[in-house]
Design a binder for these strands. Structure first.
Length: 571
RNA sequence: GUCCCCGUAGCUCAGUUGGAUAGAGCACAGCUUUCCUAAAGCUGGGGUCGCAGGUUCGAAUCCUGCCGGGGAUACCA
């Protein structure tokens, strides 16, 4: 995948007489002064019956100068390798230049389809801040899988069914007269829902009323159906406002209601296979052999439950797309639920069994506790996004007063939203995250705006220089800072693979930051010594440096795209 | 009770799948502004990698047991 890595592998395997396909772990030495890459000899010692330092000597002795590698030295049990810098610089510039927007991607997933279930909010409720996790991790995974050659289907699985929606219909009947849903519809619906739940505690007739309304909905009663459809549309329109801010678009929106008619065949099939047993009045699949609680599919009152809907929906997704993999980007609190119905699919021997993955993530905590949207007072996602854009707009006005108001507003949204998204995606999925306004609204250091700033900086320097980068002579590159930057650029394709293999967008986010730091360090050299500027006085050197900077910019733009951040040309 | 996740600098987090002296940012002390502008760079202090064992040439990383935090644990999603 990288001719320089290939050369190192070839050298090691041939020197030690190992098969050419032996796994050779190529790492970065702790100190750049030691070399560009390093290979530890320990893994080969046992098989070859020799001590690691001796093997390192053998590799060194077999090295012949010329080609991709410039020097090979033994440091005890390690073999440190320096690669030919002019060749490497030329290689990097060529790759990025040829790849452009697709640079970093691969075709590993060619012919394969992944269905990614993400965001999946409940209608008639706001998108709260914590929805950013599923929404952006899922969105980013769509792009990462696509960059790895997969066909992706992004799916929003709306919570639009169940007795809670009956409550809302009942509440509307009581108090809905005169309410205009055209403006802040979701807020009004949510208020009605909260009001109804509160009233239920006082008035025992309300819960049956809600059930009756839901029954009407299930039976296709036109009045109930129309009203529910209206609530659904109002909610979707409001979700869409937030999604468009984030650049999120789905390939399909299928709510729980969509699968309503598809559950009976699932139940029948499980019953026919003898998997469905009666237990405490409910119909369940026993999972004691998997050390799991039984999976309830039909409640004792005869109604279905979310496991039934998930099974029906998986079946439907299989019929629609014949996926090779289906990701469920859902918080880790639902781990048992997913294990249960994945197990049911396996027991039933369905063709898609084993292809589902629960991509779990940690929860957003407020003061160390899980959020409760029911308790009210939840922080809304659009509020956080708007606040960040507002704050950053003031910063831009101060730092870049010549920018027009329109442009400033556009860039403020890109960078403000970028700050919020980056703050979430830069962390490993698995950990819980504490909601912290101060940290979300910081634009310095390990942040999205820092990455975007480096991108804008490079774009501006290159734009103003107006040089013909196709004439760049890579042999004129060579400072330590340029070198470290180029090495990082070359790592990008592997990061795109790793992020996909682990379903982990933070790998790309962390990488983007590392690349920015390397570039920023390099760029700052120019303030100490004008000869070290990117756009220095010596035209051929400037051309080569601008070409490398341009490669960094392209890499950065591609990385930011994968995590859903805009890459502004100026800021 | 059982199961899952987490525990690394004062705070927020990385750590190349077991490798050489554990790294960033924030905060703190200081220094540096004619390329996009300091939204940055450089220097410095700051660590028993929760604790105790084990596995081996070698452990923040793997195994076991504790401690601490969060979550799940059949008719909500």
């Amino acid at each position: 995948m990288n001719p320089f890595h290939d050369a190192i592998r070839a050298l090691v395997t041939s020197a030690l007489g190992l098969p050419a396909d032996t796994v050779v772990a190529i790492a970065t030495p702790p100190n750049p002064a030691m070399g560009d890459y390093t290979v530890a000899m320990f893994p080969f010692a046992k098989a070859l019956g020799a001590k690691p330092p001796e093997l390192a000597q053998r590799v060194t002795a077999a090295f012949a100068a010329g080609g991709a590698l410039s020097s090979v030295t033994a440091a005890g049990p390690f073999v440190n390798v320096r690669i030919s810098r002019p060749a490497f610089f030329a290689h990097v510039l060529g790759l990025v230049g040829a790849g452009r927007d697709s640079w970093g991607g691969n075709a590993d997933g060619a012919g394969k389809t992944v269905v990614i279930d993400y965001s999946s909010p409940n209608i008639s409720k706001h998108l709260a801040y914590h929805h950013i996790r599923s929404t952006m991790i899922g969105h980013s995974l769509c792009r990462i899988y696509a960059a790895n050659g997969w066909k992706t289907v992004g799916l929003n699985f709306l919570g639009d069914w169940g007795t809670t929606h009956g409550m809302l219909l009942a509440a509307w009947e009581r108090w809905g007269a005169g309410i205009d849903l055209a403006e802040d519809g979701v807020a009004k619906l949510n208020a009605l829902y909260v009001q109804f739940r509160a009233a239920m505690k006082e008035d025992a007739t309300l819960e049956p009323l809600a059930r009756t309304w839901f029954k009407r909905l299930e039976d296709g009663d036109a009045g109930a159906r129309d009203l529910w459809e209206r609530f659904r549309q109002v909610s979707l329109a409001e979700f869409e406002k937030v999604y468009s801010k984030l650049g999120v678009a789905f390939d399909a929106v299928r709510g729980e209601s969509y699968y309503e008619g598809k559950m009976q065949p699932v139940i029948d099939d499980l019953a026919a296979k003898g998997l469905l047993v009666e237990s405490e009045g409910a119909r369940v699949v026993d999972l004691t052999d998997r050390k799991l609680p039984p999976c309830i599919l039909v409640k004792s009152d005869g109604a279905t439950i979310y496991a039934t809907r998930d099974l029906a929906s998986a079946t439907d997704r299989w019929d629609s797309w014949h996926f090779d993999r289906a990701l469920y980007v859902v918080d880790k609190g639902q781990t048992v639920h997913f294990k249960q119905w994945f197990a049911v699919a396996e027991k039933a021997g369905w063709p898609f069994a084993g292809r589902m993955v629960h991509v779990q993530f940690g929860q957003v905590l407020f003061g160390g506790r899980k959020t409760s949207t029911r308790a009210g007072g939840a922080v809304l996602l659009h509020e956080v996004l708007d606040e960040a854009a507002k704050e950053i707009e003031a910063v831009i006005a101060e730092k870049n007063p010549s920018m027009t108001a329109d442009k400033r507003s556009e860039v403020a949204r890109q960078v403000g939203y970028g700050a919020i998204v980056y703050a979430d995606l830069s962390k490993l999925r698995s950990g819980d995250v504490e909601f912290d306004w101060e940290r979300l609204l910081s634009f310095e250091g390990d942040t999205g705006p820092f990455c975007q700033y480096q991108h804008a900086r490079i774009a501006s320097v290159v734009r103003k220089a107006g040089a013909d980068l196709s004439l760049a002579d890579a042999s004129l590159l060579g400072t330590e800072e340029e070198w470290r930057t180029a090495l990082l650029v070359a790592d990008f394709p592997q990061k795109v693979r790793d992020a996909c293999a682990k379903d982990e967008p933070s790998i790309v986010a962390t990488y983007a930051l590392d690349l920015c730091r390397a570039f920023s360090s390099w760029y700052a050299q120019g303030s100490k010594d004008a000869a070290l500027k990117v756009n220095c006085d010596d035209a051929p050197t400037a051309n080569a440096r601008l070409a490398l900077a341009s490669a960094v910019r392209q890499t950065l733009a591609n990385a930011l795209f994968l995590i859903g951040l805009a890459a502004p040309e100026e800021m």
